[in-house]
Design a protein around this nucleic acid. Sequence first.
DNA 1: AAATAATATTACTTTCGAGTATTATTGGGG
DNA 2: CCCCAATAATACTCGAAAGTAATATTATTT
Lengths: 200, 200
Amino acid sequence: MARPGRRMGAVGEKSRELIITAATREFSQHGYHKAKISSIVSKVGLTQPSFYLYFESKEAIFKELENLFQSRLQDLTKKSRLGVGIHFNELSTRIRESLKNIFEFFLENKDLTRIGLFISPESKQIKEKFTIQITENLLAEQSAGYFRSNVDMAFVAESLVGVIMQITESLLLSGQKDPENLAAQIVDLFLYGLSSSSEK
Amino acid sequence: MARPGRRMGAVGEKSRELIITAATREFSQHGYHKAKISSIVSKVGLTQPSFYLYFESKEAIFKELENLFQSRLQDLTKKSRLGVGIHFNELSTRIRESLKNIFEFFLENKDLTRIGLFISPESKQIKEKFTIQITENLLAEQSAGYFRSNVDMAFVAESLVGVIMQITESLLLSGQKDPENLAAQIVDLFLYGLSSSSEK
DNA sequence: AAATAATATTACTTTCGAGTATTATTGGGG
DNA sequence: CCCCAATAATACTCGAAAGTAATATTATTT
């Protein structure tokens, strides 16, 4: 087996970084199976066996990318827990900003996002954790009286995650709409619904 | 190349059907690439080359399953266009029923649904068509005054599709909730939102 | 500048599964 | 009951891509 554990000089660090970047692109464009190690490293000007100087296997580098995405997303979600004692009319602004941050992160890391959300077989688990975080946040806000009490917040969180995924795939990553705009529309829909009696 | 175009007796029809069923299972469980022709066909008690009596290639049978899913879904969506002159208080019931039908279809065809919605590389296009249908339905209902006018129905349709996908994956196919229940919760959320001023 | 560690290459093995050629068996219509 | 098409099996080919062995080159350290 390859031994990518040993110590590395400046040149190696650089190569490893370049491979990571190229691999992110490759996996994002072609999916796991059609992505070729040979094609990844050749983008960096290396030959195929050099790959195994830095990574155990194709699977190993893919997992590394999954983990990178997941940990960054988790940090972001944790930061967006609203503090106590927010004014009622601040609420929608705050939620909007949290959503905007998430969309901005996705947009700035398109390829990594595609991997984490759509390509990885772990995407289901990634979304589950994301959903749990959101549920917790929503429950806190519900018991603070910001939301009506006869709604199942676990269900709302699932829905919100579904909307985020779909909007990300179809409107954000394709460049049709910007984070600000999307965040505002989601908040409006989730807070007030479609009923014509909510007309402002 | 194989010649699966020639005519077929009763035995062949049966074998072809069995292979379709087994393939649906296999693709649903393992995804396209890890699915093996040998494994599909052995579930039916045949050997690998017999497969090519009935299908051109691995890709061909997969496409056949994609198309099957898509056409069934399309039929279902078309049927759920609401007729004119529905009473306001019937509205939520009718939407709920349409959603319930869709969820029931998904539940009765779990494996095919997994393929069409989550495994196929065409899933994006499948969802796009689905979204367009829904947008049309929603626009008709909006201009009939059922929904408030200052909401972008294309966006709502995208959101609804996102919710349907996510809920299907996490709550429906896993058997945690039933179609009726899910449909009701979605309608409630989309019509009235979370705002505590909509408390009933 | 010699020694040694790191980085890379060329040339290979291996595995695995799709698809084919050829031959055998079955079963239903005359 | 016999023939021919339909159905199936055995035994292959072929290609693609992952991963390895052995060796050469470059960078670094003392």
